[in-house]
Design a protein around this nucleic acid. Structure first.
Lengths: 208, 208
DNA sequence: GAGTTTTGATTGGCTGACCAAACTAGAAGA
DNA sequence: TCTTCTAGTTTGGTCAGCCAATCAAAACTC
């Protein structure tokens, strides 16, 4: 019963935060949406910040499950025998689907980023959020680089950061403007990344 | 005198907003920072939103000037005779410098993005902001594509969107975590983009 | 002295957090 | 089995504080 109530509050928070945003949502709003007394949200979550973090974690669960269903754990190692390029391709595709299936998650995420800019508690959560996902991209990147004819000048971490950046930058544009063609942007990103990963060796080197 | 006062308020707003963020900054704070009476900010700016937009425009001016100094107008056409690849390279470099020289501008920008998620007035400003800069990237991209041995599958707009995304995604990571190596990420992005643009023709096509 | 700029106090409203009291369910004891 | 007892839940009201925006009046300018 208690756990159910807590869950209901988190879900109500998630819905309300997506709809109105962190600063335009009060604890009372969330309690009302959950159908509980105004004070109860504070019984389960010391501060509004804690509730935001819980709401994000909750909202991310479905996409996490989608990754697991595709055979990938966000934190665990990648399967040894898989083709890294195919993996990368699938990664872009899943990101694309994720954005299409539930833009609300990204809305919530970017809201959290915005709050985190000037809020230490949220900022820590944001950094952890970014680290986890960027590390995941790095793990795929690592495999891809290992198979390249000529290794890139840039480090795995730097490339992963650039790719993470692009994925979230595309989502940002979509969230800000529903007219934006995120699919095309994801395809372009995929085309560039794959072309880079599969380029032949022996080209004149002038970077760095 | 009146214009000076207005300017002083904008500058005070810019400083205060960078330091504390939109929602943690009150009109009184800004007036105090500017050294004027609380009511005056509302004399020049009908709403706090208007002041935020003005502050961002003001904060962006130096980097705009840097671009102009480099021979590029953000809205005008590119010089015909220049090497597009060199132009692209310079673009990444300038973005890198911009982030290093004044991360506050990006802080302000991302704050505006966050507010814009659930605020129609700011949202419109954000879309205009993104459109302008993305169009600029597209203009450079256009030139680069024209010189490619084999044109990409993706459209100019899609590629420009992906690159804009990456630039801002990198800045986001830097703003969220000062330890983040933005330079390396920019270099990685540059390496990938240039490699893609200069790849030889005739490769098996399997995208799209 | 008309028009513009600036002041500073006020207003109406909302917020996060707190808390004392009421309720609930299940364990312990008779 | 029936009755306390208790710990965990839930309620709803309170509170001190802050805010954007307004406005009448003062100061300044030409």
């Amino acid at each position: 019963m208690a756990d159910q109530t807590k869950e209901r509050i988190i879900e109500a928070a998630s819905r309300t935060l997506v709809r109105r945003g962190y600063h335009e949502t009060s604890m009372k709003d969330i309690a009302a949406e959950a159908g509980v007394a105004p004070g109860l949200a504070h019984y389960y979550f010391e501060t509004k910040e804690d509730l935001l973090v819980a709401a994000i974690e909750h909202a991310c669960r479905p996409s996490m499950d989608a990754w697991e269903a595709a055979g990938v754990s966000l934190t665990g190692p990648l399967p040894e025998d898989a083709d890294p390029i195919a993996f990368a391709r699938m990664g872009f595709e899943l990101a694309k689907q994720e954005l299409k299936a539930d833009p609300g998650v990204f809305l919530l995420t970017f809201d959290m980023f915005g709050v985190g800019l000037h809020n230490p508690k949220i900022s820590a959560a944001v950094r952890a959020f970014i680290d986890e996902r960027r590390a995941f991209v790095a793990r795929i990147t690592q495999g891809v680089i290992a198979g390249m004819a000529e290794p890139p000048v840039a480090s795995t971490a730097a490339i992963a950061a650039a790719i993470w950046a692009s994925i979230h930058g595309i989502a940002l544009q979509k969230v800000m403007d529903p007219e934006f063609d995120a699919d095309a942007a994801f395809d372009a990103l995929s085309e560039m990344a794959i072309a880079f990963a599969t380029r032949p060796a022996g080209r004149a080197r002038e970077e760095g």
